[in-house]
Amino acid sequence: MFEARDVFADRQDAGRRLATAVAKYADANPLVLALPRGGVPVGFEVASALGATLDILIVRKIGAPGHAEYGIGAVVDGANPQVVLNEEAMRIVRPSSDYLEAEKNRQLAEIERRRETYMEGRPPVPVEDRTVILVDDGIATGGTVKAALRSLRRAGARRIILAVPVAPPDTIEALAQEADEIVCLSTPEAFRAVGLHYENFEQTSDEEVVSLLHRARSIPVRPQ
């Protein structure tokens, strides 16, 4: 049985509690990056509390030839989109360079389509020399988050903070080398699924994402 502190009412509750945990970064002009869709309601609360800019970071998996669910890498959007490859999977699969290039371009097109849907054509906020707080509604295996963190490092972020409400302890340990700091409110040993740690874990819709990102543009950014 979970303790009360391990359960969040909804993503808004999780975001408010997470905002308190990262409040020390409010004066660092942080950029809050949320992983859509479920990370956006959480990230909105964090950005609102910190007086920070909110943007999204879209990650698209590159699947193995003939086995799309087996990830061999990922494409991560941003001012300069990054391709992050899983070295172990690459050694096993050995995909051709033509396949990788085609998949990269296909996923980049999908990223652009989603960014157009969510951000109405606004370009990504550059992360170079910024303190970045990467937010999701929870982590299970961590593959997507790892790709996102590595892309932020390559893009020149000055400091990277991973902030999530809940994740299994072994996943947090595996990600420790990828971020400068990890803030995770709950790391239950008996972790089975992110949704079990929420009373309300209804799927976040595209419409909700668009609405929150629109509202985020009116957040008063804390003066530096």
Rank of each mutant, 00 (worst) to 15 (best):
A4F: 11
R5G: 14
V7R: 08
F8G: 04
F8N: 08
D10A: 05
R11A: 09
A19T: 00
A21K: 00
A21G: 00
A21N: 00
V22W: 02
V22I: 03
Y25Q: 10
N29R: 12
P30T: 05
P30E: 00
L33P: 06
A34R: 05
A34W: 07
P36H: 09
P36A: 03
V40D: 14
G43N: 08
E45W: 13
S48D: 14
S48V: 04
L50W: 03
A52G: 09
A52L: 07
L54Q: 12
L54W: 07
V59W: 00
A64S: 08
A64N: 03
E69S: 05
V75Q: 04
A79D: 14
N80H: 10
P81G: 06
L85I: 05
N86C: 05
E88R: 14
I92M: 15
S96K: 06
D98L: 07
Y99K: 02
E101S: 03
A102K: 15
A102V: 13
E103M: 10
A109I: 01
I111S: 03
E112G: 05
R113T: 13
R115V: 04
T117S: 03
E120M: 13
R130K: 15
G138Y: 06
G138R: 03
G138Q: 02
A140D: 13
T141C: 13
G142M: 02
T144E: 03
K146W: 04
K146M: 00
L149A: 07
S151V: 08
R153K: 00
R153Y: 04
R154E: 13
R154W: 09
A157L: 03
A157P: 05
I160W: 01
I161V: 12
L162H: 02
V164D: 03
A167V: 10
T171L: 01
I172C: 10
I172N: 09
I172S: 09
L175V: 07
Q177V: 04
E181D: 02
V183T: 05
L185G: 14
L185R: 10
L196K: 00
H197G: 02
H197N: 11
F201S: 08
E202C: 12
E202S: 15
T204R: 09
L212W: 14
L213E: 09
R215K: 13
A216H: 13
R217P: 02
I219A: 12
P220G: 01
P223H: 02
P223M: 01
